[in-house]
Write a protein that binds this DNA or RNA. Structure first.
Lengths: 128, 128
DNA sequence: CTGAATCCGGATGGATACTG
DNA sequence: CAGTATCCATCCGGATTCAG
């Protein structure tokens, strides 16, 4: 994603992609679609995400109005994140994508293997 | 997207995202959904993409079996790219996403503006 | 517990020049 | 026309450290 001039007339697709394209956002969003969740709980379930990226990701999602951040005034401070209606709308478009990915991952892998095999031996395909 | 060990058990979502998450792939794919296209033609229509990234992107899409690459044996060499059935399936899941992006971009922008305003003046919301 | 700030290595991606 | 190779600035993102 080149810097470009996003403040002017960015194509909307680029705009969404810049949001979910970082991979973490999508994962967090899909996780939150199961219901509200707290910071460290997310941290555990997303698995692999660093504290920093979770923090950054959540802030971006909140900024874009896709999730809400609620601070529970408790002795050990708790913060709960939940998807908004806007976020729900996006998620509903994301789920088919996830399902496609799950279903067709084998096909993609096979295509890759075939491609790589072709590249490995581009000459003399009938050779001994 | 952290390196991780993708060769083992990557979640499929991560796998797709790594493909379309680079933003260019999605743009190119959606463009090709309108019909086959040649290199420089794509270069012009995608707008903003560098020669290098178009080349890299096309190769990845071909590797994953989402598009085909056909070399026409002509005096000025021509190469035509076209989506495969697999690619078509993915595109059909992508289009709702694009449409959502187009429709709700204003809402996202408003959310951002509100968030930024809140951050700029977190204190004294009823002041002056 | 939740989160921000800093440091820093590695990957990303643009510009350019060259090839078939 | 359709790329590939190199160079290099930038950004992403992990680890660590500190704060509320």
């Amino acid at each position: 994603m080149p810097p470009r001039d996003l403040s002017n007339q960015p194509c909307p697709i680029r705009d969404v992609l810049d949001r979910i394209g970082d991979a973490w956002s999508l994962l967090v969003l899909l996780e939150l679609s199961n219901g509200p969740c707290r910071f460290n709980a997310l941290r555990r379930v997303v698995d692999g995400i660093s504290q920093r990226m979770l923090s950054v990701t959540l802030r971006q999602l909140e900024r874009d109005g896709l999730i809400t951040r609620t601070v529970l005034p408790l002795s050990p401070p708790q913060v709960e994140y939940a998807v908004t209606d806007l976020g729900t709308g996006l998620i509903s478009r994301l789920e088919p994508l996830r399902d496609w990915a799950t279903t067709h991952q084998p096909a993609v892998w096979e295509a890759r293997a075939r491609y790589d095999a072709r590249q490995a031996a581009p000459i003399a395909e009938g050779a001994a």
